[in-house]
């Protein structure tokens, strides 16, 4: 009798430990908390056209154009290769063909030169968490380092992280003219629409060039 009881209790203990472990894994796997749906930043104001004799109307350090090859985001333990992204026939942006690789949109400035450079990565893809799975967990000031073909590493700092409905994507704020070397990191978020097979929102992290290494 006692032996039978001991066995039962051991099984119960194993189940309890396994259950607790499963819940811990579940907690770890939980998608990163997302910012609320946000209004895009106001259109960047360009310098007033009042004075003459200016040397520059732009802000901050600017690098010459050079294609990006690798992205590092220490806060997210991200260190991945970069591929090029064009447009699909319907005019939307291409996306990487695997969960890990990050894509650089080639119809935009290169990271570190004047204007918004655009990187896109999956939040998840084909059963694996994507490189940008925790993009929404970035904080202002977090570093994003982009290695370029010319050997220069452009170091950016995150300035804001927003969530937008895809059907109201703020193209002006994300892709429009800016007076500095900027970076936009894009992934998916929000509600997942099973019927369309797509998330309804995009997470966009904005960053500005702070220096080089």
């Amino acid at each position: 009798m006692t032996r039978h009881r001991t066995h039962a209790l051991i099984i119960a203990a194993v189940l309890a430990i396994a259950g607790a472990a499963a819940i811990a894994i579940g907690h770890h796997d939980e998608p990163a908390a997302e910012p609320p749906l946000t209004a895009p930043p106001a259109a960047p104001s360009s310098a007033p056209a009042t004075k003459v004799g200016h040397d520059v109307l732009t802000r901050g350090k600017l690098l010459p154009a050079s294609v990006p090859t690798r992205v590092r985001i220490p806060a997210l333990d991200v260190d991945e290769a970069i591929t090029g992204l064009g447009q699909e026939p319907d005019g939307s942006m291409q996306v990487p063909t695997d969960a890990r690789t990050v894509g650089w949109y080639t119809k935009a400035p290169t990271p570190g030169s004047l204007g918004p450079a655009v990187l896109a990565g999956h939040v998840n893809f084909h059963g694996a968490d994507g490189t940008f799975a925790r993009l929404s967990a970035l904080h202002n000031g977090d570093r994003v380092e982009i290695t370029r073909q010319d050997g220069i590493t452009a170091v950016f700092a995150v300035t804001r992280v927003d969530r937008y409905a895809k059907n109201q994507f703020p193209a002006g704020a994300v892709y429009g003219a800016i007076d500095h070397a900027g970076l936009r990191l894009i992934t998916c978020g929000g509600y997942f629409d099973r019927r369309s097979g797509h998330y309804v929102d995009n997470i966009v992290a904005y960053a500005e060039l702070r220096g080089t290494e």
């Binding site: 005019g91 939307s92 940008f132 059907n167 994507f169 992934t187 929102d201």
Partner: peptide, 17 residues
């Protein structure tokens, strides 16, 4: 005074399944 994306993609970005 600034620079922008040369060819703006249509809509959002399909970065997740």
């Amino acid at each position: 005074s600034g620079a922008a994306v040369g060819s703006v993609p249509v809509g959002g970005v399909a970065t997740g399944d």
